[in-house]
Amino acid sequence: MKEFVYDTVYLSEEDFEAGRVLYETWKPVARYAWDAGIAIGRYLAELKNGRLVGVHCPSCGRILVPPRMFCQDCFVPTDGFVPLQDTGTVITFSICHIRWDMVRLEHPLIPAVIAIDGASPGMGILHLLGEVAPQAVRIGMRVRAVWKPPEEREGAITDIRYFKPLE
């Protein structure tokens, strides 16, 4: 099969820096206003109030979080918001040392999927863990939301600073 591999020309980063190869650069103007919609709009409004909410599916009876207008399993509209606790269980986590552009972080972040109490089993949200040493984090760990003070909240997922161990 060797003869059917094209001998592609490859470059090093230095080829660009030294001007050995011609290129163009372009930064697209890619700014967006993403509509939160009704379900997530309410989710954000309740975060501002210091509450987590889910939605109820009248067909399977599950309480889903993040909230949504329909149950993707039953394909029926959900029928109302349900208050949830701001505690939960770590389903999985990572200890992240890099930013999205591969720059190393001074202090690692601990992203986690957290199953929220009051929602149906397995209903997790993505958030960060704090006030805990990375090596002390365990799957199954019980955690509680640490909220920003009311005056600092803006109706965003970051109105919860992070989740910290319950004990």
Binding site: Y32, W34, A36, I40, Y43, L44, P66, I91, T92, F93, S94, C96, I98, R99, W100, L109, P111, A112, V113, I125, L126, H127, L128, I139, A156, I157, T158
Partner: peptide, 27 residues
Amino acid sequence: FITIFDNITERALGPNLLWIFALEMNA
């Protein structure tokens, strides 16, 4: 890849693509 995270409920947390894999791998 960043926009594969929900723009509203997840991106504000400062994620990168590796999170998903790391979280899945740990699970």
